[in-house]
Design a protein around this nucleic acid. Structure first.
Lengths: 265, 265
DNA sequence: GCAAACCCCGAACGCCATTCGCAATAATCG
DNA sequence: CGATTATTGCGAATGGCGTTCGGGGTTTGC
């Protein structure tokens, strides 16, 4: 009954009023994790940021896991700043970009959220919003879940890959020189070994990696293809599949997603 | 130079031979993590499993991160038990299923591997194997990377979602009764709130969740759609897109992936 | 045969999440 | 209006963690 934090009342009826709210905990935790990394987020650190004693946190939360739950739900709120326009494909594209931008803003979010199911109010609202994209298409509940699941599996997986690539500090992508610079003497050793000819060819020939926006482009292209595959199973959703990718189409939809934000997707 | 473990020699030329190999560390660590969970994996625990002193581990490894690196590469070896048959789509399907099965066998693997780039020998071999699927298709290096990246982003994302769903111990899927049973009084509270009509409808109407193989099916269907979208951009890869999904097609390919293993995909 | 290089590891350090118990506070009840 | 009771804040303590230090033993190359 009360092992779900969202079911417990924020404060009792008796006794002194709590000094903070759950939102206070969530937002300071998010701030710290954003600034110092998720590994630097300790109960002591949160309490310090809040100006409270460490043990006091356990009046608000059963343990660190519930802190994570609060953080995830707080950030989930940022993925809800969007109203669907009626074109499921454009709407899904926009939602995916919005999710990606949010996850890149809070670099700990994707890994944390991918590992658990969250049922906080903002997370539920996000799910509700996502489902609303399919309004009027006549899809069954199962079908909607599969479609959404496929798109967001791709989005989360791709974002995690982006973060992993960037997390390697000075380490970079797969372009020849950047990768060489990172690996020091390991890159040449791999190539010299002759054991990985295709990998070597990719390292040597890759050109896209030099482009500054290559991560965005890869995301847009991949997303577009995933959606093309999904369109296959949506009545009336079959569009002419373009033989060559056109990332600009995704960019357009993405621009619509964050009308006021910078066009960095 | 030597901040990549794969570049450091396993033992020096002088002094006593080390009592263990890196593989010993990797395999005991994997065994412990499989059996007791990744959180139970401590340096002390590994040393105990190895019959060594805790501090001795630091003769083999710079820190716990490198233990993770060894574990990931050890498990990556399990994704290499496959030889492509020449049909890129069937081969990618098989590779995806093989990856999924491996990740489900080692429930810590996906989350760990998704967060970092690994360049151990088995991981490189896995990449090389994956790239070989595109042999003879005339794709550019960039194009191959985007295709592979899209497929594996989906695979990793989907597997993480499956694990998250199962990780919630007794917590289950999205079927009405199972979900209600998990949430205790939270589920009814959500529905009763009336704030999430689409979510409520999905909870109530979902039927697939009752099927025992629903996770496999969702994976197969999603993967098939992703591949359909990718086929769009591969010369000669455009097949007639089926208006309705046919998960059995993916299952067939998957069976081919592990000819000797149990047909549990 | 001997010095340099290497291995093993007990002990210690500082940080962590979590628990316990007590003093302070505020709503409720008699 | 007390007295009761539920609740809050938190100092102190517990046990576990990753990692470092330093010393004693072992093997190799010269």
């Amino acid at each position: 009954m009360d092992d779900v934090i969202w079911m417990r009342p924020e404060q009792g009826t008796r006794g002194p009023k709590p000094a903070f709210s759950r939102d206070d905990l969530a937002h300071t935790a998010v701030r710290i994790a954003d600034a110092e990394g998720i590994d630097a987020l300790s109960m002591r650190r949160i309490a310090a940021g809040l100006g409270a004693g460490t043990a006091s946190l356990y009046r608000y939360v059963r343990g660190k896991d519930e802190i994570f739950e609060l953080m995830i739900d707080a950030v989930a709120a940022e993925t809800n700043d969007f109203t669907p326009g009626g074109d499921w494909r454009a709407d899904l594209t926009a939602l995916a970009c919005l999710y990606r931008e949010t996850a890149l803003r809070h670099r700990w979010f994707a890994a944390l959220a991918a590992g658990r199911q969250t049922h906080g109010p903002h997370s539920l609202a996000a799910l509700e919003l996502s489902l609303s994209v399919f309004d009027g298409l006549g899809l069954s509940a199962d079908e909607m879940l599969v479609c959404l699941g496929t798109v967001f599996a791709f989005v989360r997986g791709q974002v995690l890959a982006e973060l992993a690539e960037a997390d390697a500090a000075h380490r970079t992508g797969l372009s020849h020189d950047e990768w060489m610079a990172q690996q020091g003497e390991y890159g040449p050793a791999i190539i010299a070994s002759g054991r990985y000819p295709r990998f070597t060819r990719v390292i040597v020939e890759a050109e896209q990696p030099h482009a500054a926006d290559r991560l965005e482009r890869a995301f847009a292209v991949g997303l577009d293809r995933v959606l093309t595959g999904i369109a296959t199973s949506i009545p009336g959703g079959n569009r002419a599949a373009l033989p060559e990718e056109n990332p600009c189409c995704a960019s357009k939809s993405c621009e619509a997603a964050s009308p006021s934000g910078p066009p960095n997707c």
